[in-house]
Amino acid sequence: MDIIVCIKQVPDTEEIQKVKINPQTNTIVRESIKSIINPFDENAIEEALRIKEKNSAFVTVISMGPPQAEEALRKALAMGADKAIILSDPSFAGSDTLATSYTLASAIKKIGNFDLILLGKQAIDGDTAQVGPGVAEWLQIPQITYVRKIQIDGRMVRAERSLEDSFELVEANLPALVTVTKEINEPRYPSLRGLLKAKATKIIHWTSQDLQVDLKKVGLDGSATQVIRIFTPEPPSHGEILTGSVSQKADKLIKKLKKKNLI
């Protein structure tokens, strides 16, 4: 079977605190910020590889982003993916989730063969969780989001989908799109052999021409939403360290919480 995994390169979690805004241009200063594969997307890669090991499959990873997103694809290859494609073009810049999902879907259509499309449940920079359902809609295929367990059964995918206080057991015919949570697996580290193989594998580069996309639907032009301002939230108040003996601290805490009507 053919599996396509969509991955995004995002600022490293440890570095997220350092994300700063340039007050002049109202944009995010990204220099000197280390990048990683979006953590949930690593789970998506891992799940594709596990399915490959069980059912035999061809795993293609794609990422839309600036040229340095190749790093993320290289890591996916090192983990064991078979093929990597970067969608990079100046006209893709400034995409919102509508434009991003259109571009990804166009690439998936160009790849042509797909049974299962895997994505992370959300990207940790934008936290939108909108790209997965968007891609499924552009492709007119079923979607199953927030999945913590997948089983492939012939032409069928069976999944456990997490809800707030329960989970659903669902199934859909392939091709289908699934977004995964971190509970689904523990992503592997690339092996030495994998790293060497990844170095030797060529990453395919597709531009807007290769995808034959409608330029009105990509990048800023294709985005229905516009970010008009970004700002730093009020810094969290430092609060108060309670003092005294253990017993006094407990009394003080109870008093304070009572005063706030919390208990």
Binding site: D125, Q226, V227, I228, I230, F231, T232, P233
Partner: peptide, 12 residues
């Protein structure tokens, strides 16, 4: 966005 480190104002 960015896990609450940044706030964004968005219009359509």
């Amino acid at each position: 966005a960015f896990g609450g480190n940044i706030m964004a104002t968005i219009v359509s």
